[in-house]
Amino acid sequence: MSKTLTIEGRDRRRALALAAPALLWTLVFFALPFGVMAVLSLWQRTDQGLEAAWTLANYAKFASSPAYLQAALNSLEITVVVTVLSVALAYPLAWIIAVELPAKYRRLALALAVVPFWTSYVVRSYAWSLVLAKRGVLNGWLGDLGLPLMDLANSRAATVIGFTHFFTMLLTLTIYASLVQLPPNLRRAAADLGAGPVQIFRFIVWPLALPGVMVGAFLTFALCIGDYVTPQILGGGNDLALPQLVMLQIGRRADLPMAAALSIVLMAAVTLAYIAMARWMKEPSK
């Protein structure tokens, strides 16, 4: 009896030793910095440098200045629109690739759908700015076709387009992954029992693939709301987003405490979205 106990103890120690490096790394370079940020957000920036003021003044400033709240709202609106648009665009494509396409073309189709992933992220936003510019490619085509030109550059629309492009690729991948996991004979069985295509989708495919879609949507939300590059390159200094506000604090004022407080606000938004998703997925009726 005691021998098995010691073996068990030895195994546990061994398992812990295996997990220790990753845990330690996460603790030192993720959890600890997070704590540093939380502490820093209670400090103040003064002429002399950083002062350990232990005050909620930075949060109060966020909550009381309309421009800051507006930035948070802008971020939230952009992120929600992008998430919905990207899912709406990616789902049908993932469906076509996973279900409609002959199996031998699937891999190729999927690879093609994510090829632009391999251009640099910064360059991709820049490329969209060339497409959408007033005298850019898109307006060139519209002009050739005799259609009215569009003034999309340097706007929220440009930011949304840039984001949607990236996340459509990402979501095609994740939604495809959850669609191919569904056993095809489920659909066949339903069809044998007389279900039409709409019913099959509504009652079988949609609910079964939903968790995968939701995870993808959450990922989109978290990545989109925290991104600085796309709104900075495509937004043209209009509709300031929260990450831009964070970078302004560092770049213009050397105000790390305010940047930390705004980052915590950003994290709170992501956490709320996560809780909402977790709740929603737990509800059995959906």
Binding site: F29, F30, P33, F34, V36, M37, L40, A222, L223, I225, G226, D227, Y228, P243, V246, M247, I250, L256, A259, A260, S263, L266, M267, V270
Partner: peptide, 12 residues
């Protein structure tokens, strides 16, 4: 967690 937040935390 957004990369911006991770980066800022490490910077600080």
């Amino acid at each position: 967690v957004s990369y911006l937040v991770i980066g800022l935390g490490l910077l600080a």
